[in-house]
Write a protein that binds this DNA or RNA. Structure first.
Lengths: 123, 123
DNA sequence: TAAATATAAAACCATTTGGTTTCATTTCGA
DNA sequence: TCGAAATGAAACCAAATGGTTTTATATTTA
């Protein structure tokens, strides 16, 4: 039984700036809670809660090592975010598809004619 | 003064599933609030609030047309999300960089030897 | 012009969120 | 073995979130 009723999904998990910063830290290396906490000005308990939320979203995984609990990044769920994003990419990826979108959806279009010296064909 | 103290950023804006669904609807075409509402089972007022939040994040833009207010998608802020995501892509993009990451960060690695018939070189 | 449509704005409410403090438990090390 | 270190867990709290209902305003349209 891998992954099921996750209370927090990846979208919610990354909504909080503190959690994004935690992910960024863990991207560098596996870290114990106390050391993660040292990078913030909030309590260790608060950080632990953020780690729980990240765990639920499976963006992070903790293992106990002695009296420490070491967390490391698990980036796989971010692929879901990427898939979601990819749908919208066509709207900004190139000017042509953006123009198409705008025209089709009643947007306003400004046409700017750029004058160029064109050599005449078959004079 | 374009964009500044946005109370809601793109990360927060897309955290809510209702708002994601609204974005998806507006990706198809510009729509008035009432029609957006018809796709949900919550009140028009609630939808209007979601639209305000999406507006703050500049993911959506409304214009008044008669007694209607038409909203359309503005996907540009999603590029910020994409930039954020791109940082993490190296962690899952190819097996080699993932292996590198896991090894460097004290993860466990399972080595699976796949036997292959190899023709001997220079026999 | 009066009724119907579409939205806006305000007041209110329950739950969630992001934080705190306090107390207990486990583990390391001198 | 005893104290310090690291975490876990619980109780609590203020503010934000995601809803609702009610009232008001503007715009069509019959």
């Amino acid at each position: 039984m891998s992954s099921s009723a996750e209370k927090h999904d990846v979208f919610q998990a990354i909504a909080d700036p503190t959690r994004r910063k935690i992910l960024r830290l863990l991207a560098e290396k596996e870290l114990p809670i106390s050391e993660i906490t040292s990078h913030f000005s909030i309590s260790r308990t608060a950080i632990a809660k953020h780690l729980h939320i990240l765990s639920e979203a499976e963006l992070v995984r903790g293992r106990k090592a002695g009296r420490e609990k070491l967390y490391r990044l698990q980036p796989e769920p971010l692929t879901e975010l990427k898939r979601w994003l990819s749908f919208y990419e066509r709207f900004w990826n190139n000017k042509l598809s953006k123009l198409k979108h705008v025209v089709e959806h009643n947007g306003e279009v400004e046409i700017k004619v750029i004058e160029t010296d064109v050599e005449e064909r078959d004079p």
